[in-house]
């Protein structure tokens, strides 16, 4: 059993630790997103300058989503699928982190900033190559008769 004094001490430490990254302005304690597969082009890491994409990726994605979904525009720029394909990479053991885990590209920041996103309720959090393998191993009787289990 913890005494109240002990508990208070823990609490202070906990609060201090949580505040630290904010105070130290996100030094090495900030989010650590995994590296992308490759640079977008010879002179740019991402499809937009990093500062821009960090601040505005949601707007870009939203604009694109409406164009693709409602109007059938299928270009790759600013498409969520492209982001996932390039950014969600396996670790050294070849395993993929899933959305929600700190090691997943998107959650690495979103967990840190405590910003919830809906995207992965409907979109896969993995590149299709990886998803495909999991789909068939999860469901050995996949894709059979009339929607029955």
């Amino acid at each position: 059993m913890m005494s109240f004094r002990q508990f208070a001490k823990h609490l202070v430490i906990l609060v201090g630790l949580t505040a630290l990254p904010i105070l130290s302005n996100a030094g090495d304690l900030g989010p650590t997103p995994p590296k992308a597969k490759m640079n977008f082009s010879d002179n740019s890491k991402c499809v937009k300058p990093i500062a821009d994409i960090r601040r505005n990726h949601m707007e870009l994605l939203k604009h694109k989503r409406d164009e693709t979904m409602r109007e059938g525009v299928r270009t790759k720029d600013n498409s969520l699928v492209e982001c996932i394909d390039c950014h969600v990479t396996p670790n050294k053991k070849g395993e993929y982190a899933r959305f929600g885990e700190d090691e997943h590209f998107c959650s690495s920041c979103h967990n840190y900033a405590a910003v919830n996103v809906d995207c992965f309720d409907c979109h896969s959090d993995l590149p299709e190559d990886a998803a495909k393998i999991l789909r068939s191993s999860n469901n050995p009787h996949n894709m059979t008769e009339g929607g029955k289990k």
Partner: peptide, 10 residues
């Protein structure tokens, strides 16, 4: 989970 990129559903 594991939706197709071309068929999001949720």
């Amino acid at each position: 989970e594991l939706q197709k990129p071309t068929a999001p559903r949720g």
